[in-house]
Design a protein around this nucleic acid. Sequence first.
DNA 1: ACACAATTTAGAACCATTATAAACTATTAA
DNA 2: TTAATAGTTTATAATGGTTCTAAATTGTGT
Lengths: 136, 136
Amino acid sequence: MNLASIYIKKLRNSGLRPTKQRIKICEVLFNTDKTFHFSINELSTLINSKYSQKISLATIYNTVHAFKDKGYLKQIPLNANQAYFDTNISDHHHFYDVNEKKLIDLDNSDVGPIKIYKKINGKKIKSVEVLVKLED
Amino acid sequence: MNLASIYIKKLRNSGLRPTKQRIKICEVLFNTDKTFHFSINELSTLINSKYSQKISLATIYNTVHAFKDKGYLKQIPLNANQAYFDTNISDHHHFYDVNEKKLIDLDNSDVGPIKIYKKINGKKIKSVEVLVKLED
DNA sequence: ACACAATTTAGAACCATTATAAACTATTAA
DNA sequence: TTAATAGTTTATAATGGTTCTAAATTGTGT
Ligand SMILES: [Mn+2]
Ligand SMILES: [Mn+2]
Ligand SMILES: [Zn+2]
Ligand SMILES: [Zn+2]
């Protein structure tokens, strides 16, 4: 079974039609053993340098949001003026190198267990994310 | 010694001229026992509802950035499409209630000690921030 | 092939933020 | 006191990431 057909299955299973554009985006995002972080613009450049047939920026926005909603991507709270996404959807944390302006994964095993003692009535914890800023 | 003169001293000590605008902004931000979180627009509304003489949005941006640079405010990585600031400059963490879209302080004592086992050569830790998302 | 809904796309709109540059003001030196 | 100067405020424009719009295209079930 080739790559494309795997992504077609994945898309169909998610209720998303397997269009040429979405399959290409899957190939760029998921056809690698390494996960990575990206902004929409970086992804757009990556995709459009890889293929001669361009994908519009609007489609890239649409698709990234769709994939995020389906849980195939995570958005990382970094509070820059642009959104950052992560193909690593496992429970993990981040270093942010403020000099290089680069995100680096911190596996869950790189961080000790995080205890939250405070409770808010009627609310439950959805996620716990640690951002460790690094400087020279 | 009255409030204004305290802020005048604070501003002078920071190399910032004590203008009417900056003193007012200090009063709104720091003249309270409770710390709080705000976006620039929320702060602008707060200030301009409290005083008849309005302060321009540009000045509020300038001043918030100056205060942040001086360490009188913290910016909170929330990755919304707007910046959030905190008058609580102590080392602490946050709950983010995704339903109410509200930030809640987590004192350092509300969170167990955070161990970071991974090291990056030549880099040192500048800050460690935990964001705990809450849902109903 | 056909009908229909989903998707793509270029371009416009949106909106938080930053830049500009002219008027104003705090400070310091005559 | 004034005068000179640098710092500040402000209205307004520009920027840039993101979302919206609506028309053209495409995927899917019949
Ligand atoms: Mn988004
Ligand atoms: Mn900012
Ligand atoms: Zn990551
Ligand atoms: Zn806080």
